[in-house]
Amino acid sequence: MQLLETTRNHQSELAKYCRTGQYNPIQGVNERHVGRYRQLVINVVDDTLRSAFPLTCNLLSPDEWTKEVNDFFSSHACQSPQVWSMPKEFWAYVKDQQPAIVKKYPFLDELLWLEWLEVEMFMMEDKTAGHTPAGNLKKDKIVINPEHHLQYFTYPVHLKNAQQITKTDKGHYFLVLHREPVTGKVKFTNLSPFLARMVELLAEKPRTIKELIKKTSREIGIVPDQQLAEDVLHFLENALAGGLIHGFVNK
C-alpha cells in the first residue's frame, strides 16, 4: 500500500509547522505539546548557525539574527543530511537571495563565507601530497600543503572587526587558509596580490623560489630585486614553519 495522501499531508503539515512556526490544526495532534517540535527543530538550526557564524551572530542584533535564521529555515529547503554542513546553505541563501540585511551590511556574504571556510577547512576530508619535509627553500622545488584554500574578498572581513567595516573599505583582499597538519587547526594568512599569485602557482605544481619569483614578477609586471627575493624567502620560511608549505619534492 502506498502512503495515502492524507497521511502525507499530515506529515507535511507538521513539517511545515516546524519550519515556519505557523500552526494549522492537524488531526489527532496534542496542541499543548506540538510546540516542542518547533522549539526542538529551530533550536538545532539556530545553535548550529550560531556555532558556525559567531562573528555574524555578534554583528547582527538579536532581532536581526532571529529574523534571518527564521526566514532562511522557513523559505529554504535544507538539503544536507549532515547538520554540520547546513550552515553552508545559509551562506548560499544570503548570497543568492540578498535579503534586506545585506543593504545594511554589504560585506555580509563575504563574512559568512569566511566563517564557513573555517568550518569547512577544519572538517574536510584529508588530502595528501607526496613530499619530503627536508629540503632547501632556496634551491628545491616547494610543495604546498594541499589542505589550503586561496580566497579573494572585496571587504577586509578577515582583517577588521566586522562592526568597523564600512563601504570605504571596499578593495582587493587576498588570504590563504590552511589546515595545520599536526593540530588540524585552520590558520589564516593575509596575502599581497604577488604572494596570492605565487600561492596559486604553487598549487598548480611544485616550483623553486627562483621559478616562482620569475613567473609571478613577469605576470604582474614588476622587476624582481633583492628586496623582493628576501621578502618571498621570509614568507616561505614562515609558511614552512606554519604548515602552509608541506616540504619539498621527493628526490
Partner: peptide, 19 residues
C-alpha cells in the same frame, strides 16, 4: 525530512496502516 527539506530532528510518523 519532508517536502524535500531536512528538519534535523525526529518527527513522529502517523500510526496508520499505510504508514
Amino acid at each position: 525530512k519532508c517536502d524535500n527539506a531536512h528538519l534535523y530532528d525526529l518527527l513522529p510518523v502517523p500510526f496508520t496502516a499505510d504508514a
